[in-house]
Design a binder for these strands. Structure first.
Length: 829
DNA sequence: GCAAGGTC
């Protein structure tokens, strides 16, 4: 029997399909899928099935001095026991094996790990095949002429594993021990996470150090003398700077007002020059992971969410592998054929047919060509049931593919320079003459700037003059996709890990919000690392490692050469760290506290801190506790983030509550509490729970945490309550709900929101939320959710408790098995 | 309880 080993199940299934010409069957070993046909078996791993670690005697952080990890042995442990067991048992039955993992360095290492597991069981020939996309031709050609594993390349990967573990673990333990942070709140550093964190911290330092400067810009509205009213356009004042370049900003107020007055003295301007240009705007390159994340970010998806959706679409077979650096379509991809599959599609058909009219389909390509996976593109398999988010992302991938085979766009640029009373004015117009690829890819801006056709020497009316006082702005914080792009350009992390690294920084309490802002703890960690272990916060560590890995792969260095040198460097770092342990610990503890301090306690003058209760909720408490028991409540939704902004009255920092899309600013917690104390409850009717027996009434209440609700006046004996929005004035109308005998409410926060009867409103809200929860289940689209609602399934609970067979009989197109899958998912979530 | 890299 010949055993074929791939990096993942998906690849195993597709390779089996190709080599067996569709004749493969699936069986399970230890729960792992094995594809069989003829004399062949094919198993997919799950990436690395073994990992590096220290022997168990190094496990206790308190027992082992961190520096000892530098010379500790590094052992391999099985991390995916089911898969390893399945692989071993298959190996015992095989008379030869073929490693078919991904065609990249990490794939070579994963292949070598499989090689060693097989070797422990059987002394059989083990060969290697390499292909860059799982297509019929590439796979057949690769299997026709198997090659050998590249052990040097695999050793390069192992060197990375060892160095990352030893630096990461030793320094993480050192910092955590020094700050006495040993539980879930340990303080981590690493070759990838720390330079990424420094990138964010450095930008924050620039922002903090920024000193804004005043400047002025001068504008005039110009209009053709006999033209239509909408022929008016804006032109900007400019002058020649000392270096001969065009300048728009006036840095001196007197000069600015002088120019303003001069221009105001002009009633007309004379066109000095008109320049027309045509510019082509080339369609974008195929999607690699980073550019995909960026595009998904521009339509509102976080990096993590974008990757998670892409992975789901990939597993379902609708798009190709989402983790790739490649921006060049492989020769095997027939773009015309793929377009043809879309020609009959209800959503994409028109665009696909239009693109097929081109004589020659020549796709764009990016700078980077790799051997592991093609750029992300649709497979041509059409999805049936997608959630709204999945559909939006799927459409993005389809349209990006369309864009890469579409024509360039053409813009007409028109630059007009005019002179008015000695002032020179310019206007740059642009018009999209031919939308080209924008017609099929509507995600990039096509904003035009209108400037009418004018002639040289033509006289224009000056209809308005504006002098804008402005200030230079600090650099902007990078958003998630910009950070990922920067990490890529620094060579830090990989296509498969960068978004996860950002998530890790959030989880470790190093960054908050979006765009991410570093915490004081992050500032402290980066400062400590810069002083004592500069290498671990520098991108050079990765650059050096890459060079060393290349040397190992080329046979110019050995794994031991490289790891021993790294050990020496790390030992020198520890020699410096040793004496400063106390000082570093104090600094880190001060940083940790700084993230939580709001300001002085009104009762004892100690610091008020954001704290967490035993039940997990947040509140503001005094650092003087238990001597001082002063507290203030915080909203019960989201994670509190302390802002720099301070309340003038109470000298307390403002608090923002981070809750994804529902993030809001709470402000000064003392102000909120005092406002609540001063707000009278407004009675609006009888309590439906206890009104008849106990005479309880419903009132609009404001809590000290800032929440508002309609609740029973007998609270806490009666806990009946309905939520109200946090913001906006609540108006009570005379109209009453017939069913509940309560007044209709209107919330004034921007556009008036007619909330109506609070009981009806809450019922509707719950129904909407339930519908959304059901739609979030894997493979339940809106249509299915509607069908389920029609048979009375309106919440996850309804779904969980329903009889799958009965529902299947009533709902067309949904099997009982499918419903049981959803029930499992609903119970798990 | 450490890292970073695969993959789910």
């Amino acid at each position: 029997m010949e055993l074929i080993i791939t990096e993942k199940d998906n690849a195993a299934r597709r390779i089996a399909e190709i080599l067996s010409e569709g004749g493969a069957s699936v069986e399970r070993r230890n729960g792992v899928a094995v594809y069989r046909w003829g004399g062949r078996r094919c198993i997919g791993l799950s990436g690395h099935v073994v990992g590096v670690d220290f022997p168990p005697e190094y496990a206790d952080w308190r027992d082992v001095r961190p520096v000892e990890l530098v010379d500790a042995e590094v052992v391999k442990t099985e991390t995916q026991e089911n898969i390893v067991a399945a692989l071993r048992s298959l190996a015992r039955e095989a008379d030869r094996a073929i490693v078919a993992t991904d065609y990249d360095r990490e794939g070579e290492l994963i292949g070598k790990e499989a090689y060693e597991l097989v070797r422990e069981e059987a002394d059989i020939p083990i060969r290697r095949v390499r292909f860059s996309s799982i297509t019929d031709r590439e796979v057949r050609e690769a299997f026709a002429e198997p090659e050998e594993l590249d052990f040097d390349l695999a050793a390069a990967g192992e060197a990375r594993q060892i160095i990352d573990l030893m630096w990461g673990a030793a320094l993480t333990r050192f910092l955590s021990l020094s700050a006495k942070q040993l539980g879930d709140d340990f303080i981590s550093v690493g070759r990838v996470q720390s330079p990424t964190l420094k990138l964010i911290v450095d930008r924050e330092r620039e922002i903090e150090a920024f000193d804004p400067e005043d400047y002025w810009e001068l504008y005039a509205d110009l209009a053709k003398e006999a033209g239509a009213a909408d022929d008016e356009f804006e032109a900007q004042y400019f002058f020649e700077g000392d270096d001969g370049t065009e300048q728009e900003r006036l840095w001196d107020e007197d000069e600015a007002t002088a120019a303003d007055e001069r221009l105001r003295g002009a009633t007309s301007a004379v066109v000095e020059s008109v320049r027309r240009r045509t510019r082509t705007d080339d369609p974008p390159a195929p999607f690699n992971t980073t550019q995909y994340i960026r595009a998904a970010g521009s339509i509102g998806y976080s990096a993590q969410r974008a990757m998670s959706i892409a992975e789901d679409l990939y597993t379902a077979g609708y798009v190709t592998y989402p983790r790739t650096d490649n921006t060049v379509y492989p020769d095997d991809l027939d773009e015309r054929e793929l377009l043809e599959t879309f020609a009959g599609h209800p959503n994409f058909g028109d665009d696909a047919r239009h693109l097929l009219e081109r004589d020659e389909i020549e796709p764009t390509s990016g700078d980077k060509q790799t051997t592991d996976h093609p750029p992300i593109h649709p497979t041509g398999e059409f999805p049936t049931e997608l959630t709204d988010d999945e559909w939006e992302v799927y459409e993005l991938v389809v349209r990006r593919f369309f864009a890469t085979v579409a024509e360039p766009a053409t813009w007409a640029h028109l630059r007009v320079v005019a002179e008015a009373n000695g002032c020179r004015l310019k206007a740059n117009g642009k018009r999209l003459v031919d939308p080209g690829y924008h017609a099929v890819y509507p995600y990039l801006s096509t904003t035009e700037n209108y400037v009418p056709e004018v002639e040289e020497g033509e006289r224009l009316d000056v209809t308005e003059v504006r002098l804008d006082a402005k200030q230079t702005q600090p650099p902007r914080r990078r958003g998630q996709s910009r950070l990922i792009e920067t990490m890529e350009s620094m060579g830090v992390g990989t296509k498969a890990t960068r978004h996860g690294t950002l998530q890790k920084l959030y989880d470790r309490g190093y960054i908050e919000g979006d765009p991410p802002r570093p915490t004081k703890l992050a500032m402290g960690v980066v400062e400590a690392a810069e002083r004592f272990a500069d290498l671990v916060v520098s991108e050079e560590m990765t650059a050096q490692l890459e060079q060393d890995m290349t040397a190992i792969a080329d046979g110019e260095a050995t794994l031991d050469d490289v790891t021993d040198e790294s050990r020496d460097i790390l030992k020198r770092v520890f020699a410096d760290l040793h004496d400063s342990r106390e000082e570093i610990g104090k600094h880190l503890r001060a940083s940790l506290k700084a993230d939580k301090v709001l300001g002085p306690c009104p009762e004892c003058g100690s610091d008020l801190l954001v704290r967490r209760s035993r039940w997990g909720s947040y509140f503001v408490g005094c650092d003087g506790y238990p001597d001082c028991e002063y507290t203030l409540p915080l909203p019960n939704r989201g994670e509190p983030m302390v802002l720099d902004e301070r309340c003038e009255e109470h000298d307390l920092k403002h608090v923002k509550m981070l809750a994804g899309r529902n993030t809001f600013t709470h402000g000064c917690p003392r102000c909120r509490a005092e406002e609540a104390d001063e707000t009278e409850d407004r009675v609006i009717g009888a309590c439906p729970d206890c009104g008849p027996e106990e005479g309880g009434e419903l009132a609009i209440k404001t809590l000290r945490s800032g929440s508002r609700l309609v609740g029973c006046t007998r609270y806490p004996e009666c806990e009946y309550s309905l939520p109200l929005p946090r913001r906006g004035e609540i108006e009570v109308l005379d109209e009453r709900c017939e069913e509940h005998d309560l007044p209709e409410l209107v919330v004034h926060n921007g556009d008036p929101w007619e909330l109506g009867c609070p009981i009806c409103n809450f019922a509707e809200y719950k129904a909407r939320r339930a519908a959304r929860a059901i739609e979030d289940l894997d493979g339940v689209g809106r249509k299915t959710a509607e069908k389920l609602a029609a048979v009375g399934i309106e919440s996850l609970d309804d779904l969980r408790t329903a009889e799958a067979d009965e529902v299947a009989a009533e709902v067309q197109g949904v099997s009982a098995d499918r419903i049981r899958e959803w029930q499992t998912e609903a119970s798990a979530g």
